[in-house]
């Protein structure tokens, strides 16, 4: 690991100014991903500006019935928060589906959004990787890619975004509040992460020295919500595929639905094609299957990860079926 300078920021603007003034500067939150990447040599900041003690730790209800979540709220505190558990169960479940108890105690909301892909080639500095070293190539496309993308990838990059939390936030129409040298702005979560295109080095639309200060949720949508994740072991593994959904069924007909997939793309994949197909349709397994298949028709699986398409379809169909069942009959909540 390269030696680095360290500053503990006294305020948000001071932190932003410190990173803006230092070309090799990075913000340090919980550090559960960044410190790991520094050990691997993937990240080598010359300056860490520690934002870990800034008071961005509030979870509060907003006047419009939504929720404001400070960027420094720890994953475990977010998942356990009464308002999150009772009003946004998919979010609580998604956070609890990620990482381990120890990591959730340390990792923050802002850092979760900004974590990097776990693609093996990205994490191995001895290998080419367009995300880590633009123009060096992508060995994953022909190499080990069982865990990688089936939707929205590019010739340059087939990485997936590893967050569970962000998938639930995508389905819940969350927004990301950013503050930078040029002031504040708010970006819909679904527009925050990017597809790789020909700039895979950019995971998100965040600008240099811009800081995630909070995540905002609108009032909980009508209906029931849940998150479900398929992985290689029962706990403490990244998603092969996951699904977050909100479903409101009235008299057997889909009144409103929001669906997002994780583990399939470079960003949380909001399934707008499936949603469109489902609005006004009968809430039946047949409708759910047709909608999921319509969404996944765009999939371009790689040699070893074609199973993810069927897996994602089945996860979505089963979850929507559970959510459609009257309370007490489904296994989802």
């Amino acid at each position: 690991m390269r030696a680095f300078a360290y500053e503990r920021a006294g305020g948000v603007d001071e932190a932003i100014a410190a990173v803006a003034a230092s070309p090799g500067g990075m913000f340090l939150g919980g550090g559960t991903n960044l410190v790991d990447l520094m050990k691997l040599g993937v990240a080598s900041p010359g300056l860490l500006v520690d934002i870990g003690r800034l008071p961005l730790t509030e979870v509060r209800e907003t006047p419009d019935g939504g929720l404001h979540i400070g960027a420094n709220v720890r994953n475990s505190d977010l998942a356990a928060h009464p308002a999150v558990r009772s009003r946004y169960p998919a979010l609580s479940q998604a956070v609890l589906a990620g990482a381990s108890g120890q990591i959730r105690n340390t990792a923050t909301t802002g850092g979760n959004l900004l974590q990097r892909t776990r693609c093996l080639y990205f994490q191995d500095v001895a290998k080419p990787c367009n995300k880590r070293e633009p123009g060096s190539g992508c060995p994953a496309r022909e190499g080990v890619h069982r865990d990688l993308a089936v939707l929205g990838h590019s010739p340059m990059c087939v990485a997936t975004h590893p967050s569970d939390m962000a998938v639930a936030l995508a389905a819940l129409d969350a927004v990301v509040h950013l503050r930078g040298p040029g002031g504040e702005r708010t970006v819909p979560l679904c527009d925050f992460h990017r597809l790789p295109g020909d700039e895979p080095q950019r995971d998100t639309v965040i600008e240099p020295a811009e800081l995630v200060v909070a995540v905002g949720l609108p009032a909980p949508p009508a209906g029931r919500s849940a998150y479900r994740k398929a992985r290689d072991r029962a706990s403490y593994a990244f998603a092969l595929a996951s699904v977050a959904a909100v479903l409101d069924v009235r008299a057997g007909v889909v009144e409103e639905v929001r669906l997002a997939f994780g583990g399939l793309a470079h960003k949380p994949w909001r399934a707008r094609v499936a949603e469109e197909a489902l609005r006004g349709a009968p809430a039946t397994e047949e409708s759910f299957a047709r909608a999921a298949e319509a969404e996944l028709a765009a999939a371009e699986p790689l040699r070893e990860n074609g199973f993810k398409v069927r897996l994602a379809r089945n996860l979505a169909v089963r979850m929507l079926g559970d959510l459609a069942a009257p309370a007490g009959e489904g296994s989802a909540s």
């Binding site: 360290y6 503990r8 340090l28 550090g31 559960t32 410190v35 790991d36 860490l48 520690d50 870990g52 475990s76 108890g101 120890q102 990591i103 105690n105 340390t106």
Partner: peptide, 19 residues
């Protein structure tokens, strides 16, 4: 490497001491 820091369990291998 799990220890308790300020009462909560965490992976001490990923915590920078200075922070």
């Amino acid at each position: 490497c799990t220890v308790l820091v300020d009462g909560r369990r965490t992976n001490s291998c990923l915590l920078l001491a200075v922070a």
